[in-house]
Write a protein that binds this DNA or RNA. Structure first.
Length: 379
RNA sequence: GGACGGGUGGGUGAGUGGCUAAAACCAGCAGACUGUAAAUCUGCCGCUCCUUGCGGGCUACGAAGGUUCGAAUCCUUCCCCGUCCA
């Protein structure tokens, strides 16, 4: 099976219901990628992920390059084999680490010089290197190296980062295509470009146009949801999706909260990833059909109800809030396992419901209901 | 019976005249988390009052007295606990 993307239906809002095919299976869009930075979605086994219905996960170039090393993974026949995950994998490029590890790196036109957060050693991540690593990992979708900056940013800073991101995208694209020519076969990987430009609509448009020239099979919107208000995230996303070809997948990177996801889909986004469900779970924040449950709170100490009475997940079918709260209080690792299981189920279920909503043309209603529920805490 | 050492806030445990409602850690309570340096981080944590302020009052470092302008800190007696000696 090779790569393809097909839009099956477009909703009046602009939301798209589609199908992405990869050599490691089909993925129904819009979809959410659980984040498994180090080739592991924290607290979940691959069996659990399969059971939850995850069709694709995200892993990280920077982290896997540092440890265990992309060459090691190449020798072990690639990331799918290494982590025993037969379904699709998208690898992020390390562009986000330019942002999040700002204390440990220096950005130049050549690339990003990182000091490893593991042992302090110095590493140069260039657009070519990030692409090479991802080819070695053998992910289904590779992201180009981009420069993700903090928001709000002065226009000059955003402009410079955008120029660099475009230049890097060009180099990454060339490296990728050259490598395909060398192999004499189309690479078993898709490479996506990433639109930058901070919160400046014209810069975002400029970025999108420049990347479109490079003929990527899919496009991401990066550098959003890094502190700006949700309305701004939406406005900028809309600005970009308006320019992207209908036939190509659109990926909004790093989002979002449960109640925001429908909004993004309504703007024509097909794929998203976010650490929120997994990280929040480990910290005791559980998402439910009624809103958030901070399970460590005293009020749940004797609550025999499941996390979410409307949730069919394995955790809700079997365990009580009181037990979950106890596990967190006792710092048992089962707390993280059960909480993550539930939250990932919840996110994947949101996506299932969104795909249904698009089918029946009531996504807008779904989204406004989600916002209403998450505006207040559950009883 | 004797000799030392020690008794501090829910716990462990700093503090040996004023900067101490008392370090730090733990426990407890609440909050944050958006392409994961996160099983992390932040705030509160004696009681009370209000004009919520680096605000006022009260109580507090085994007990009771005392010295001092001022005591968790010095003195006296007593009560406990530990170690050792008889």
């Amino acid at each position: 099976m090779s790569f393809s993307f097909e839009v099956l239906k477009t909703d009046p809002t602009g939301a798209r219901r589609g199908r992405l095919s990869t050599p490691h299976g089909e993925v129904q869009t819009p979809f959410f990628l659980p984040v498994g930075t180090q080739a592991s979605v924290k607290a979940l086994t691959q069996e659990a992920l399969e059971g939850l219905g995850a069709e694709i996960v995200l892993a990280n170039t920077y982290h896997l390059y540092l440890r265990p090393g992309h060459e090691l993974i190449r020798r072990l026949r690639g990331l799918h084999q290494f982590m025993s995950w037969p379904r699709a994998i998208l690898t992020d490029s390390g562009g986000y680490q330019v942002f999040s590890l700002s204390e440990l790196r220096k950005v130049t036109d050549e690339g990003v010089r990182f000091r490893s957060h593991l042992d302090g050693s110095e590493h140069l991540l260039t657009p070519e290197k990030a692409s090479e690593i991802q080819l070695a990992l053998g992910s289904d979708i590779a992201m180009v190296l981009d420069e993700c900056i903090e928001t709000p940013a002065p226009r000059e800073v955003a402009e410079a980062a955008l120029a660099r991101t475009t230049a890097w995208a060009r180099r990454a694209r060339e490296y990728f295509q050259e490598s395909a020519r060398r192999e004499g076969a189309p690479p078993a990987q898709w490479q996506f470009g990433i639109v930058q430009g901070a919160t400046f609509p014209d810069l975002r448009r400029k970025s999108a146009r420049q990347l479109l020239d490079l003929d990527f099979p899919g496009y991401a919107v990066g550098g959003l949801a890094v502190g700006e208000p949700h309305e701004v995230t939406c406005a900028i996303t809309a600005e970009v999706t308006a320019l992207l070809p209908n036939g190509l997948p659109r990926y909004l990177m790093g989002v979002g909260r449960p109640e925001q996801i429908g909004d993004y889909v309504g703007l024509g986004i097909d794929m998203m990833d976010c650490v929120l469900p997994t990280r929040a779970a480990r910290h005791g924040c559980l998402y439910t059909s009624e809103g958030r449950v901070l399970i460590k709170n005293l009020r749940y100490a004797e609550d025999q109800r499941p996390i979410d009475s409307n949730c069919p997940c394995g955790v809700c079918r079997r365990y009580s809030r009181a037990y979950l709260r106890h596990l967190f209080a006792a710092r048992e690792m089962t707390a993280a396992i059960l909480a993550t299981h539930h939250n990932v189920h919840f996110y994947l279920d949101i996506m299932r419901r969104i795909r249904e909503a698009i089918k029946f043309g009531n996504l807008a209603k779904f989204s406004s209901e989600m916002h209403a529920r998450y505006a207040v805490d559950p009883a």
